[in-house]
Amino acid sequence: MKLKNFNIKKKVFIIAEIGNNHEGNFTIAKKLVRQAAKAGADAVKFQTFKTENFIRKKDKMRFNQLKKFELSFSQFQFLKKLAHQKKIKFISTPLDLESADFLIKNADMIKIASSDNNFYPLIDKVLRSNQTMIISTGMTNSLQIKSLINYIAKIIGKNLTEKRIVLLHCVTSYPVEDKFANLRSVEYLIKNSKLTIGYSDHTIGNEACIAAVAMGAKVIEKHFTINKKFSKFKDHAISADYLDFRNLVNGIRKVEIQLGKFNKKIQQPEKKLIKQVRRAVYADRRIISGEKISLKNIKFLRPAFTSNFDNLKKVLGRKTKKTFYKNQRINIDN
């Protein structure tokens, strides 16, 4: 599968989840895009919303905070242009239907938050477009995920579902304690679906993301901030800063190389050592012609100087065709 020309078969797609860590400051938002690109992210992700369309005004504290965090559609268009200048993708999560209409036309991909993975009017709207949709699976169980996949497949068909839909294992908690991360869910989703599977991380540190990649995750999303102590807004404390994120990217890229291929072969550097560290059969004393070889008259020493390593097990019990002297190497043909 390709995510907007990004081949996830060759490389893990790493998303810097900026979310609302700009806190409505457009200058900070631009700086976050630049830093994410510099740290090695493949994409940045924001949240796009009209506060009055998804938060009750009676919830004054929450409403006023998010109203302050709002960026305009034109500002998001600029951020997309900036992301493209930095050779990374622009993704955002719509939190209302009006914002979904905007992002369908302007985002490279659309992310559905865990809180909305059962908000079918929003899901339907994105499905009717040609957009790739990334869905976090927080607060769902296996039956609910299966139901969601079936629902999507009925609307756009099985083939398009497999091409357009990405599922991210996610645990909705901030931060997630290690004992609740349940990374084995990545393996479970891979085994039980034909979709691209990734991981959206809310733990502290980079270990969970790297482990998820080792388990087969093809998309990694990690919260990203200018400074973990930027303000009292809780997302900063659970986010990676520039140095954290750069280390995460480097760690993932290293693990990608280390994972190699799904087989078991002798590796190139091993071939240089194999004749030196394998053993050959040597006479431990004088062995006369016709004498039977046993553990009492031979020893196994390095180096082997041969590639016929399987011959070691074929020597015992055979009779020699000639006389061998102590410390002389015994070849199976002799």
Rank of each mutant, 00 (worst) to 15 (best):
A212T: 11
K229F: 14
G205A: 05
A211W: 04
F180E: 11
S185I: 15
S193I: 12
V186M: 05
G205E: 03
A212M: 11
I204F: 05
L189C: 08
V219L: 01
G205L: 04
D244L: 03
K218F: 08
S193N: 09
G205V: 04
H202L: 10
K232N: 12
K179D: 02
Y199A: 08
Y174R: 02
D201K: 05
V171W: 02
S173Y: 12
S193Q: 00
I238G: 08
K229I: 13
D201V: 11
N227W: 09
V219Y: 03
F224Y: 15
L183R: 09
K229C: 11
F233L: 11
A181N: 12
N182D: 14
I190C: 05
S200A: 12
K232C: 09
T172H: 10
V186D: 10
N182I: 13
K234A: 13
T196D: 04
R184Q: 11
D178W: 13
C209E: 01
S231D: 03
Y242G: 04
H236V: 12
E221K: 00
S193C: 08
F245A: 03
H223E: 07
S239R: 04
S185D: 07
A214G: 11
I190V: 15
K234Y: 15
L195D: 03
A211E: 04
S185L: 10
S193F: 14
L195G: 04
N192K: 15
D201F: 08
L183F: 13
K228D: 02
N206Q: 03
S193T: 15
R184L: 09
K191C: 09
K218W: 11
S193R: 05
V219W: 07
R246S: 03
L195V: 14
K222S: 06
K228N: 14
I197E: 00
